[in-house]
Design a binder for these strands. Structure first.
Length: 481
RNA sequence: GGCCCCAUCGUCUAGCGGUUAGGACACUGGCCUCUCACGCCGGUAACACGGGUUCGAGUCCCGUUGGGGUCACCA
């Protein structure tokens, strides 16, 4: 058995779509789990829409997700080049061979002529589908005319293959037509380019979205015409929008960069996508390594699914809550850019690391995390006016003064000590923590919701804590007058 | 319309002839509690329909219905 080689072959016509990521992920997981190779190929034969910027976005997105490729742009490899527009000579060789073997032929029909025929068919029967009539099948060469290369579709028979997830698929050849392999400018069309590349790159399994399932029979026919064995195929069920329509911008974020910018963890993105159409018993949460270890085609489902933002967020939350899944160090590194975005520049990761445990279970994204720890880094903190009005009342001022006095006398500034001293004081005053917690919280954080009081005090440090209590006491006195 | 594919809670899914049809998200009742969260306990909720096969079908076969994909010198 030759080692598995799989590929992801996006066309650089925009951002990397979340559906594309899932295709890439399943290929990547398979390659990693069996020790095979993951090839990245750029299908840039649509010169109208392909751009170098898109190539960069796609590569950046793949890197952010950690979907590393063994061969492809940046890293090279033995089967390059990995941009289709740099492989034109290879396609030419193969198309010549097919023409010589009469498996394909030059078609001199112009687009205009075909458009006329198409319109005529439409007029006769609006529901009828135009199929190329084979005009040039046996036409003599027209040396001065441009031509496309068409595949000579077998008259009868059918294509049968075993899909790794859908099982046996049979498609009659009669349902197909003499499709175009190569444009008049010598650039191959999708089916031909993909086959030649998969063949010359030694791809052993082609895994792609179910929307490509219709391309598989013609591709297999090309392999047969070339007299080589086709690779295996695996099609993935569609990921649809909650409405059941095709997933698009109208239904929220579909571009990977958007999720990155919204503060998602790349591993959480992979986790959600992996569990979409694939399962492993009752397990919902996976690290990257766990996915690699558990992945297999047999556990892939066949039914299309609907994208669920809430569940995605829940998985995301699981990853941020867990030290195992997102180490404090990585968490901090991920939050820093978002702090920077809030105008909190030059915050070092070790300062953030100290705060992470207090924020973990409260933040679903790194954006929320940055928001949740904002007051630790901003002096003075932003004061939420609603919270100020509600809790920093004139009556609370004396309590804040008392706390200030209490904490001013604390030498051992630890969470446990602050807890202990506070409760001793409360008891002496015949008060309960809830009598002072909210004013204190607003005083220290500017907000009505925060991590635990003693942790906040501790992390703030004695000096800043006292300063905030004092300033808020003044603010409270003036409040309501 | 042709060809292809699919069908278990609202959603993602487990199930691979015999289950009180399980889990997760969401929703919801409660507990915990200095806030917000987290956590814990509980609840509502599904085998699209009709025929077969079988002692026995969510599981196998056929049909119906419903949904999806695709029909380019796009990928």
């Amino acid at each position: 058995m030759s080692p598995a080689r799989v590929r992801f072959a996006p066309s650089p016509t925009g951002y990397l779509h979340i559906g594309g990521v899932r295709t890439a992920l399943f290929n990547w997981l398979w390659a990693r789990s069996v020790g095979g190779a993951f090839v990245l190929r750029i299908e840039d034969t649509d010169q109208e829409r392909s751009t170098p910027e898109s190539v960069k976005i796609i590569l950046d997105s793949m890197k952010w997700l950690g979907l590393t490729w063994d061969e492809g742009p940046d890293v090279g490899g033995a089967h390059g080049p990995y941009f289709q527009m740099q492989r034109l000579a290879i396609y030419k060789d193969f198309s010549e061979k097919l023409i010589t073997n009469k498996k394909a032929y030059r078609c001199f029909c112009t687009k205009e002529e075909l458009d006329v025929q198409r319109a005529a068919v439409k007029e006769r029967d609006p529901k009828a589908q135009f199929r190329y009539p084979g005009t040039c099948r046996d036409r003599a060469n027209q040396p001065d005319k441009p031509f496309v290369v068409r595949f000579r579709m077998p008259d009868g028979g059918s294509v049968k293959y075993i899909d790794r997830v859908f099982g046996e698929i049979v498609t009659p050849n009669g349902a197909q037509q003499d499709f175009v392999l190569v444009r008049s400018d010598g650039v191959p069309l999708y089916n031909f380019g993909a086959v030649v590349d998969d063949l010359t790159m030694g791809i052993t399994l082609v895994a792609r979205g179910r929307d490509h399932m219709v391309n598989t029979p013609p591709q297999i026919l090309i392999y047969e015409a070339l007299d080589v064995a086709p690779p295996e195929f695996a099609h993935l069920p569609m990921m649809l929008a909650p409405s059941g329509e095709k997933l698009s911008k109208r239904h929220g974020a579909v571009s990977v960069t958007e999720y990155r910018d919204q503060g998602y963890s790349p591993e959480a993105v992979l986790n959600y996508l992996a569990r979409f159409g694939w399962s492993h018993g009752d397990q919902e949460v996976f690290s990257r390594d766990e996915l690699v270890a558990a992945f297999n085609w047999e556990a892939c489902g066949k039914g299309d699914g609907k994208f669920d933002t809430k569940k995605f967020l829940a998985i995301q939350h699981e990853h941020l809550k867990s030290e195992r899944l997102t180490s404090t160090k990585r968490y901090a590194e991920s939050v820093v850019p978002f702090l920077d975005q809030r105008g909190l520049a030059n915050i070092t990761t070790d300062r953030v690391e100290a705060i992470v445990p207090g924020v973990r279970e409260r933040a679903t994204t790194f954006v929320e995390a940055a928001n949740g720890m904002d007051f630790f880094f901003r002096d003075p903190p932003e004061m939420d006016q609603k919270a100020v009005q509600k809790f920093l009342t004139p009556e609370s001022a004396s309590k804040l003064d008392a706390l200030h006095a209490l904490y001013a006398g604390v030498e051992l500034w630890t969470e446990a000590e602050l807890d202990h001293r506070t409760h001793a004081w409360l008891e002496a005053q015949n008060l309960q923590i809830k009598d002072v917690a909210q004013p204190a919280r607003v005083a220290l954080t500017g907000r009505s919701a925060s991590p635990g009081l003693y942790l906040v005090l501790f992390l703030l440090g004695k000096e800043r804590a006292l300063k905030r209590l004092a300033e808020s006491a003044m603010l409270a006195r003036g409040n309501g007058s």
